[in-house]
């Protein structure tokens, strides 16, 4: 086999709460992965997520990128490219990453590659499973996104279904708040549910009439609130763990059912999970089991690659670069960026 030079990519992610940077080799191997999270400050506020300030990103980005380069033993000039999230997200936080990446690229002459945040989440699976190649189906579930995606090829995406109202992670956060579990809702409900009975309360598994792959979680949120209200009106105490478990079961059922339907109808051989909610233990278990039952390969990144991170952005940038996609120094933050668009 012909010897090839390794492709080292620096990935930068600032689209939401995390300031993150990483160096990844050949799109698959992590050399460093530095994440500076704002989650500790958030939990102080008991459920409210107050700090959306790009100020925090600005304070941290230089240090985070230096760390990522140092830990990987890479010099800026040894990089093949700098990948950066340029959407979707809030313009303020996005601009911090994009401007920083552009400045680095300009100063060093290293290529720049703009990356879609969700494509990054999907690409986390290329790191987790070095043999994973398209085509495969991917369920991306996070605080802001719920997408069932057919990954036809590297960088080629077809959205099969999406949420019509609340994202899966958002539903977790809102229900956690309603039952007094606080922020972040996903992990809190995951833990609480382990002590509860998932069949204690039957919450609806919402269907969307127009498209069997679409999701709706707002009705489920209402059902939980109505249940809590009716307990209150009857002067009854509700069981927090049971509500958490029953709610989680409803979310997991719907996500699994739609995913399996898509696997069946597309004949996919591989199914991947991605995004922050992919860390939910009940969801991982349910999808793993369902895939095993169909003889379909199941892939899910380890939790550190499910949350926002720079490694997934570097991985996505690698495959973009392979296709010759490169961004100019006029790269801008695009808050409304759609999947598969450039």
């Amino acid at each position: 086999m012909e010897e090839r030079k390794d492709t080292l990519i620096l990935g930068i992610e600032t689209s939401c709460d995390e300031t993150a940077a990483a160096v990844v080799k050949n799109g698959r191997e992590i050399l460093s992965n530095v994440i500076s999270s704002q989650i500790d400050t958030h939990t102080l506020y008991g459920g409210v997520v107050p700090e959306i300030a790009s100020r925090k990103h600005i304070e941290r980005i230089n240090q985070v990128v230096r760390e990522a380069l140092a830990q990987s033993g890479t010099e800026l000039c040894g990089l093949s490219a700098i990948g950066v999230t340029y959407g979707p997200g809030l313009v303020g936080p996005l601009l911090v990453g994009v401007s920083f990446a552009k400045a680095l690229s300009f100063a060093s002459g290293v290529k720049l590659v703009g990356v879609h945040h969700i494509e990054g989440h999907i690409a986390a699976n290329y790191i987790e499973d070095p043999n994973l190649e398209p085509p495969f189906l991917c369920l991306v579930v996070s605080g802001g996104h719920t997408h069932l995606v057919n990954v036809r090829d590297y960088g080629e995406y077809e959205i099969l279904g999406r949420t019509m109202d609340d994202a899966a992670g958002e539903a977790f956060d809102k229900v956690a708040r309603a039952i007094g579990l606080g922020y972040p809702g996903g992990p809190k409900i995951d833990v609480a549910a382990k002590a509860g009975n998932p069949e204690a309360v039957h919450f609806p598994r919402a269907k969307v009439a127009e498209n069997a792959y679409d999701f709706s979680f707002s009705g489920l949120k209402s059902a939980v609130l109505n249940y809590l209200n009716s307990c209150q009106m009857k002067g009854e105490e509700y069981n927090q763990a049971d509500v958490a478990a029953s709610f989680q079961a409803a979310v997991v059922d719907v996500l699994t059912e739609h995913s399996i339907r898509a696997v069946r109808e597309t004949g996919a051989k591989t199914f991947a999970l991605a995004g922050g909610v992919a860390s939910n233990s009940a969801l991982r278990e349910s999808l793993e089991k369902a895939c095993a039952g169909l003889g379909v390969r199941f892939c899910v990144p380890q939790p550190v690659l499910c949350t926002d991170n720079g490694a997934m952005i570097a991985a996505a940038a690698y495959f973009e670069l392979q296709k010759g996609a490169e961004s100019g120094l006029d790269l801008n933050a695009i808050p409304n960026l759609k999947l598969g668009e450039r």
Binding site: M164, D165, D166, E170, S218, N336
Partner: peptide, 13 residues
């Protein structure tokens, strides 16, 4: 376009 909740994204256009 489908209008979803902007709780997480804060702004949707």
């Amino acid at each position: 376009e489908p209008v979803s909740s902007p709780t997480f994204t804060i702004l949707q256009q």
